[in-house]
């Protein structure tokens, strides 16, 4: 089943279109990366899913049901512009947020206790947020997002402003939450986290979705059938199916060649060809990084 289906969502402001007929399909129990440059419309889309603002048109389906106000407790949301009440005690604050999500007081206390033990922040419960360090406050903020065990967790730029230790901690938690059955959507600029974490991605640029799919599918779509070969003994390939793009000496008679395969051959055919002309020591298909795909797509769009 799909955790979230967005169909034809459009949001128009007085002088610009924030979202133009956007479709998304987020599979359940996946980590879904929502990518796009600043101002592309990611935050607007996330706010619409959170029912903070309404779309002008389009539909949103959450776990098979049309999105309604009752779904607030099903979603955990960490906005990009996030914070806590500075003058409120950590414990009171967590209870307050949990109750706003629809938990009873006793349920809230029970669930908070689990997280507090896990993050070892029990001693902070009676402290005011203004007395915490920034890193501590970040942990509390994360707990407030996930403590009510939401089935869908939406994190907008979760790593911005987090120190590396907390970022690491949160990465672990995200993976653990996924294993427990939550679906996680996050928007980010950090392509390395996309490579590490995401199962699926969507790219939004200039209010339109321009790419969506599993990470592997997207990469397959954008790979250029180019292979990197390390070998001993120079060779040359002249035209036809295989094209030698370059060949460099690396060390002790080892060379590195980049070969482009035209047409529909399989890598095995290329290996078969290579072992006739040289001694292969390593063979690897050149797969584009998410960052390369992102930049080429966004740049390509803006050149149009």
């Amino acid at each position: 089943m799909e955790a979230l289906i967005v169909r034809g969502v459009t949001k128009q402001y007085a002088n610009h279109t924030a979202l133009d007929n956007v479709d998304l399909t987020v599979p359940e129990k996946s980590i879904y990366g929502l990518l796009g440059p600043n101002g592309a419309g990611k935050t607007t889309l996330i706010r619409i899913i959170n029912q903070i603002i309404n779309a002008d048109s389009g539909s949103i389906t959450l776990f098979g049901q049309p999105l309604t106000g009752d779904h607030v407790g099903v979603i955990g949301y960490l906005p990009e512009e996030r914070g806590l009440y500075k003058k409120m005690k950590v414990g009171d604050q967590l209870i307050y947020f949990a109750r706003l999500k629809g938990l009873s007081r006793s349920e809230a206390i029970k669930k908070i206790r689990v997280w507090v033990d896990k993050f070892e922040i029990k001693d902070w419960l009676n402290k005011k947020v203004e007395d915490l360090s920034k890193g501590m406050a970040q942990k509390v903020q994360f707990v407030s997002t996930v403590m009510h065990e939401p089935r869908l967790i939406i994190l907008d730029e979760p790593f911005s402003g987090f120190d590396p230790v907390n970022a690491q901690l949160i990465t672990q938690e995200i993976l653990e939450l996924k294993q427990k059955g939550s679906t996680i959507i996050f928007s980010t600029h950090r392509m390395e986290t996309v490579e590490d974490l995401c199962d699926d991605i969507a790219l939004i640029n200039k209010s339109k979705k321009i790419l969506e799919g599993t990470k592997k599918h997207v990469k397959d779509q954008y790979k250029s059938n180019t292979f990197l070969v390390e070998h001993r003994g120079a060779f040359s390939l002249n035209g036809g199916t295989y094209e030698l793009l370059n060949q460099n000496i690396i060390e002790d008679g080892f060379l590195k060649s980049t070969i482009k395969m035209n047409g529909t051959g399989s890598p095995n055919d290329l290996i078969g060809k290579l072992i006739q002309v040289t001694k292969v020591s390593s063979f690897q298909e050149k797969i584009p990084s998410m960052s390369e795909i992102f930049i080429s797509l966004v740049k390509g769009e803006s050149h149009e």
């Binding site: 949301y77 906005p79 996030r82 806590l84």
Partner: peptide
């Protein structure tokens, strides 16, 4: 303190 968006994801503004 930017707490407001956290809250309006649970209640109407």
């Amino acid at each position: 303190s930017k707490v407001v968006e956290v809250i309006v994801s649970s209640v109407k503004p």
